[in-house]
Simulated assay, not measured.
Amino acid sequence: MSLAMLLSLGDSRLPIGGHVHSGGVEEAVASGVVRDVASVELYLRRRIRTSGLVAASLAAAVCGGGLAAGRAEAEADARMPAPAARAASRAQGRGLLRLAKQVWPGQDWSGLGARPHLSTAFGVVGSVAGATPEEIAGVVVYTTMTGSATAAQRLLALDPAAVAACTVRLAADCDRTAAEAVKGLAALSDPLQDVLAERHVERAMPLFAS
């Protein structure tokens, strides 16, 4: 896979809805769990090693051909106890599918349905684009981190350079998680993120969709 294509898939400007999803950060800020750069870094590290690992392992398995898209959907559902988290994943998956149809119009995307999980969509897109399972796992882990980092920066009015430095410090964690993701499907969840996701849907006027 070309480096430019890989960077494009990991770009925060990719129009798949990531800019309106905080990955639980908005509720974490409201709850006092995340309040400064140090707590942002702790939250991102936790997110990388849980949600990031799970999503990356599913995407890698789909990309490598070891997991069919339909089965991947069921596996993703089983790993997301919170209905709100599943809805957020499918909303972004639909955005990625919409983009993919424009980039590769000759590809048959019918196997993904109308609202696939983001991990499933990334896996199929990775396969079509010629990515290796570890490359697409890296993209998934990286975007899991950066989406939440950007949301935290906006919500807390943090120094952009400080948040960027935080994500750089977490680069090795991202690489290790991507490498672990290709070894097999991760089967875990994060109760904190599940609770934050469900609380968020009850918020009267949220700034983010998740």
Rank of each mutant, 00 (worst) to 15 (best):
M1V: 13
L67G: 01
T144K: 05
V201Q: 01
Q153T: 11
S110R: 14
L156Q: 03
V141D: 10
V195P: 05
M205P: 03
V141Y: 11
A61Y: 07
T144S: 14
D108W: 01
G23W: 05
D194C: 03
S39K: 11
A88T: 13
A151D: 02
S57Y: 03
P160E: 05
A76E: 05
G126N: 07
V37F: 09
G18P: 02
D108A: 02
K101D: 04
G93P: 06
A161P: 02
A56F: 06
E73V: 07
D173K: 00
G10C: 09
A78I: 02
L6E: 08
E134I: 14
V37N: 12
L6H: 11
G111Q: 14
W104A: 11
A82V: 02
A165D: 15
L118W: 03
S119G: 07
Q193K: 12
R35Q: 11
L97R: 11
G138P: 05
S8I: 03
S31Y: 06
S210A: 15
K101W: 06
A72Y: 00
G95I: 10
H200S: 07
A209T: 15
S8H: 11
A162D: 13
D108L: 00
L58D: 00
L96E: 04
R154D: 07
L155E: 11
E75S: 03
G23E: 00
R94N: 11
G24S: 10
G32D: 07
A171S: 08
T143Q: 13
V128T: 14
C63W: 01
L14T: 02
Q92Y: 07
G17W: 15
A162G: 08
P133T: 12
V103F: 01
M1W: 07
V37M: 10
L192V: 15
A152G: 07
V124G: 00
G130P: 02
A78H: 00
C63P: 12
L207K: 08
Q107V: 15
K183A: 13
R199F: 09
T132Q: 12
A68K: 04
Q102I: 04
E202M: 13
T120E: 00
L53W: 09
A114I: 13
A85Y: 03
L42D: 13
L14N: 00
L44G: 04
T150C: 04
A91E: 12
L99F: 00
L188E: 14
E41C: 08
L53T: 04
L6M: 10
L7H: 08
S210M: 05
A131T: 14
W104S: 08
G70Y: 11
R45Q: 09
Q107G: 06
